[in-house]
């Protein structure tokens, strides 16, 4: 399931659940491509929560999380960042990072 959130909504997320947070920009071709990749992954793993956040409109959060560019994917488990992928990636790399959260 893919949900777009803001930095305010980020604070209300269930911290204990494993999740993927993706920072994207509307002006970024690789981010647009990644949205299709994440859609495919969401079809394969409909229960796994994927949150997308606009890099340009949520600057406080991206600075707090140390996100320097877009697209950037952060993989969380029990409130802690376990891994991150920077740049456009293909499905196997992302699925592998998700599986590592289990």
């Amino acid at each position: 399931m893919i949900t777009e959130i803001t930095e305010k909504e980020y604070g209300a997320l269930n911290q204990s659940e494993p999740k993927l947070i993706e920072f994207y920009s509307k002006t970024c071709g690789p981010c647009k491509m990644l949205s299709f990749v994440l859609k495919d992954i969401s079809k394969q793993k409909p229960e796994f929560p994927i949150y997308i956040i606009d890099f340009d409109e949520n600057r406080e959060l991206k600075e707090r999380l140390g996100v320097k560019g877009f697209p950037t994917m952060l993989f969380f488990k029990e409130g802690l960042e376990v891994s991150r992928l920077e740049g456009l990636k293909q499905k196997p790399a992302i699925i592998s990072a998700i599986d590592a959260l289990a």
Binding site: K32, M33, F36, V37, D40, Q90, K91, P92
Partner: peptide
């Protein structure tokens, strides 16, 4: 040469 890397997702 290499086999050029393909992308496994195609946008709608």
């Amino acid at each position: 040469l290499e086999v050029t890397e393909e992308f496994d997702t195609v946008p709608e």
